[in-house]
Amino acid sequence: MNPRIEVVAMDALMLRLFDRIEEDNLPWLLAARQRIVEAFGAALLDLVPSYTTLMLHYDVTRLDLAEARRRLAAALDGLRVPEDDGGARHTLPVWYDPRVGPELTRLAERGGLEPADVIRLHSERDYRVFALGFAPGFAFMGLVDPRLAAPRLDTPRQRVAAGSVGIAERQTAAYPLVSPGGWNLIGRTPARLFDRQRDGYSLLRPGDRVRFEAIDHATFLRLGGDDTPLAPTGRAAA
């Protein structure tokens, strides 16, 4: 790790901790985040973690650039990773089915697998949440088994149903809200991923550990899932 501090705006600094995406980055990013929150207090407007970086948006009426740099350097001094980095554990139930996961069959064919293998490989490991972005509560997770890795769709769908579970390259995610999207969809979760009425709003947070659990259609419906099918190609609108 070779931390670098960059000025990215008159009111923002980028802390660059790593050059490449690795699962091992996360504990360091989380530890740094904690220290920065404490060091900046109310002067921190926002702190945006991503795969290799933390972006600090600070209040220039409270801190000037030199003071912001000083606090950031001090926060990183002697940074250590705790034994337990504190990420919560979640199990997300998923109904894996071509009716709601139109790319399930294609991903199987691509990897020389049966659809049942895709389901098994996707649900048999823990994923970590690298970052949230794209939409409220949209968690980028990884890494999926290399046999499941697939590029995004050439033509993104104009409408992806809420709860849709997808794969893009070696990452997986679930869409919290109806939105456009280009990920390969393999199933749907009935879990409410983002709820502005709920304490904490987003079910998943950076650093959390997530495992998917295959459920059948009846269980999906009982848990409140919406089984309205999706169009198989990206061109059809809702």
């Binding site: 705006a9 009111d11 980028m14 933390l54």
Partner: peptide, 10 residues
């Protein structure tokens, strides 16, 4: 670039 936080006015 690896995706990272986007500063205001970027």
């Amino acid at each position: 670039l690896v995706s990272e936080g986007i500063p205001p006015g970027a």
